[in-house]
Design a protein around this nucleic acid. Structure first.
Lengths: 117, 117
DNA sequence: ATCGTGTTCAACCGGACGGTTGACCACCAG
DNA sequence: CTGGTGGTCAACCGTCCGGTTGAACACGAT
């Protein structure tokens, strides 16, 4: 699974990982701090962090023997760009469809047009 | 995996599924039409559509014996809301950190502080 | 009633995933 | 150098996932 977009989406598909991101948005934290709230082993959390790191969502710097984890928020743009693109496209399509329906040449009269909001 | 957010992220973690969404943003299509470009079986695509449907990204209406697939773009908001929330939070955190650094009272001069860029 | 087309269901397979345990490495403190 | 603490690596386990094949279902056409 090479492509970055897949990695990011996949990384955020896990609730624990999303929660970790949420907490890192507040403040950097060490692996042990991050693992504390969950009832899984520290190793499991370390794995989660590796997934987040591979997705570019997180970076670990070395500070003495601790490895503080830091949220790398730029990658979010990758997703929002993708999402917005197709959301817009779909909305545009609605608009166009409405136009077509409204301009119906002589077909059966469209009652009040189907898609209000 | 009950929660909607996980389902949406997970659904979009697959490149084929993202491509399907991209194509559905342009126009509705049947399963066979959707399957044509890929070198996988129709059944596989049908499975992909089920995943997208369970995530609320897609709906299938019955029209004669065909089952046209339609993109349901509202679910995108679920993701963008989540993403924006933490992106903002992280940015806010940066801003605040900068303020603190700039207002450094008289503490020992922080060499360069750990995180430049 | 029968055929053809479009779609889905069911069973199976290999590989990835989330989790565990146990050993190991890196580093500071005595 | 000997611990102790924070973190990772490695091997293993059960489950999910994307794919296949083969059969079934739904419906229009003949």
């Amino acid at each position: 699974m090479a492509d970055p977009l897949s990695r990011v989406f996949s990384a955020l598909a896990d609730p624990t990982r999303r929660d970790i991101v949420a907490r890192l948005a507040v403040a950097d934290a060490t692996v042990n701090e991050l693992a504390a709230p969950y009832d899984v082993t520290v190793q499991a959390v370390s794995k989660h962090l590796k997934v987040l790191e591979d997705a570019g969502l997180v970076s670990r710097s070395r500070e003495a023997q601790r490895r503080p984890v830091h949220l790398e928020a730029e990658v979010f743009d990758l997703m929002t760009t993708w999402i917005e693109r197709y959301r817009r496209q779909a909305e545009e399509r609605y608009r166009r469809l409405d136009d077509v329906l409204r301009a119906m040449p002589d077909a059966d009269p469209p009652p009040q047009e189907g898609r209000p909001s």
